[in-house]
């Protein structure tokens, strides 16, 4: 998504990215970025919270107008309202799931190999 934003900017269309993976968006570097500190999946606001979603879009619109230089990041003033330990959940690796993940990776590689066109 960040690469698409950069391409649009290079070709004269101003952009603002709304997203929750701050490190990845900033590593790729975009013109304007509204960072929403939520679990991945709901960048534009918590499910069912229409007023919050509207405020986040309004913030993105504001940034289109006010940013004067690239790589302008603003954080939305909202927090996840569920499990306070959510940051540790996504794609976590623990001693308990290490063997499960190793097997999952092997199964995935076998599946990709089976999908490859046969040459003989």
């Amino acid at each position: 998504m960040s690469l698409i934003a950069r391409h649009l900017e290079e070709n004269g269309i101003p952009t603002v990215v709304i997203g929750s993976a701050k490190d990845i968006v900033e590593y790729t570097a975009v013109a304007r970025f509204v960072f929403t500190d939520f679990p991945l999946g709901n960048p534009a606001g918590l499910p069912g919270q229409a007023e919050m979603q509207k405020a986040i879009v309004a913030q993105a619109l504001g940034l289109l107008q006010t940013a004067t230089a690239p790589q302008t990041t603003e954080a939305a003033p909202f927090q996840w309202n569920g499990d306070p330990g959510w940051r540790a959940v996504y794609n976590r690796v623990t001693p308990e799931n290490a063997e499960y993940l190793r097997q999952k990776g092997e199964a995935r590689r076998r599946m990709m190999l089976a999908k490859k066109p046969q040459t003989d």
Partner: peptide, 19 residues
């Protein structure tokens, strides 16, 4: 995305067309 913590059943939460 974080399937353990949240869901994407509210389309507005990731594509806020109505907002």
């Amino acid at each position: 995305w974080d399937r353990e913590t949240t869901h994407t059943n509210d389309r507005e939460s990731f594509l806020p067309l109505a907002a």
